[in-house]
Design a protein around this nucleic acid. Sequence first.
DNA 1: CCAAAAGTGTTTTCCATACACCCATGA
DNA 2: TCATGGGTGTATGGAAAACACTTTTGG
Lengths: 245, 245
Amino acid sequence: MIDYNNPAVRYYQQVSDECIHYLSIDGVIFGFHQNQLNVLLLRWKGTNEWSLPGGFIKKKESVDEAAQRVMQERTGLDKLYLQQFHVFGEATRYDQEETWRKTTIPLQHIKWSERTISLGYYALVEHSKVVPSPDFLTDECRWWPLNEIPSLLFDHNHIIDVAIQSLRKQLTDQPISHLLPETFTIPELQRLHETILGYPLDARNFYKKVMASGTLERLSERRAGTPHKAPYLYRFAGTGHDAVG
Amino acid sequence: MIDYNNPAVRYYQQVSDECIHYLSIDGVIFGFHQNQLNVLLLRWKGTNEWSLPGGFIKKKESVDEAAQRVMQERTGLDKLYLQQFHVFGEATRYDQEETWRKTTIPLQHIKWSERTISLGYYALVEHSKVVPSPDFLTDECRWWPLNEIPSLLFDHNHIIDVAIQSLRKQLTDQPISHLLPETFTIPELQRLHETILGYPLDARNFYKKVMASGTLERLSERRAGTPHKAPYLYRFAGTGHDAVG
DNA sequence: CCAAAAGTGTTTTCCATACACCCATGA
DNA sequence: TCATGGGTGTATGGAAAACACTTTTGG
């Protein structure tokens, strides 16, 4: 009954041997581009169906390491800033049959496919450094602006919603740098915060706030090539990008 | 080699059949008694070694349901207030051999025992209503004041630390009722908050703050039998105890 | 009547918000 | 020289913190 000539089936067979059953990782990889939050999505082979990148945990690897590995493969970046934000552990998270049909992959042949508990991680990456790479099951990997994301496979639209809420909560605690290049200007940082929060901020108050945080370091250079007054460049004083895993 | 006459081995065999491998739940059950935070611990059979209550997830049960079930069995209470606070997913969380030795249980015979990912939940319960009940592997279940907790099996001391940090973070957002009886006085609520936070609070400011939250309802009765001025009783106006799972 | 806890109001401080003007640059 | 965005200080309002006295009750 099982078609071992089907590459997807062989892939899942390998996963089944090497990885922990019933458990997966789903990654919401955020990028910031043209004043929009983007999420990296994958299009499944031979279909027009999209999903979040994800993967499985090898038996001798920590959960954080697994998340690093999975996200690294899709972005080409290492030492990603990762945050574990929720466990999706419902016994029935989505319509199984509908999913099998949409993916055209005989997922029902995987012996533990009847149920998966997913660990939700989000990653904050520098948009321009990412080289989106599809995985074994997908044809295409690309950025989607948050407000254009289509209906996704599994419960991945819901997972993105929860990720954004967590990201907003994190933002109220500390300024976020990981979505910007090493050096950036205060107005750029403000645009980022406005985009995540979804409402405009006062430039003077924003300036005071980020300065009060004590984590920013002003460089002597200014941003060149801007049409108007050249803004100063800043850098986060913390050693930069401390990551999970 | 495997001793199927050993009840613990038979228990683990059953878990192995019914539950998801490599995945467990650890529960930090908080109670409040005599102005102290207490945690419910279990003493393993024939030993003087203690651990957190825990359990495994059945194949057709949601993660939250599993947590409810496990905590319910140890406390005798249902509809517990539960909060999932962290995933402990290191590949090597504690010294395996040391643990086998201490528990006197041949854990090495469990085929997936080389590694467990644990989902940390904490529960807030009404101390006086709990009927502590040991489980299949333990002789004794009882409350331990937080500052008297001994060195525990596995990485459970660490899990308790992380749970308390999460609890404190939650407390800064909203007043916590679930550790107190249905009716309570403002000074009692203040003691609770002081105990969790670890520092004293100003009675007048505390009073204003909890009143401003709008969730408290003053009853006409006062606490009887106190040596001094009788304090008013209050109740949380919200329908009471909304729980996860 | 005294000790101990309960109950409450006012003042001060600090942080978040609202707000306006000058500066630098490219076109 | 003008349009556009950058850079900064001050004034105000509201919430949190500091602070002290009266009330009640049992012993």
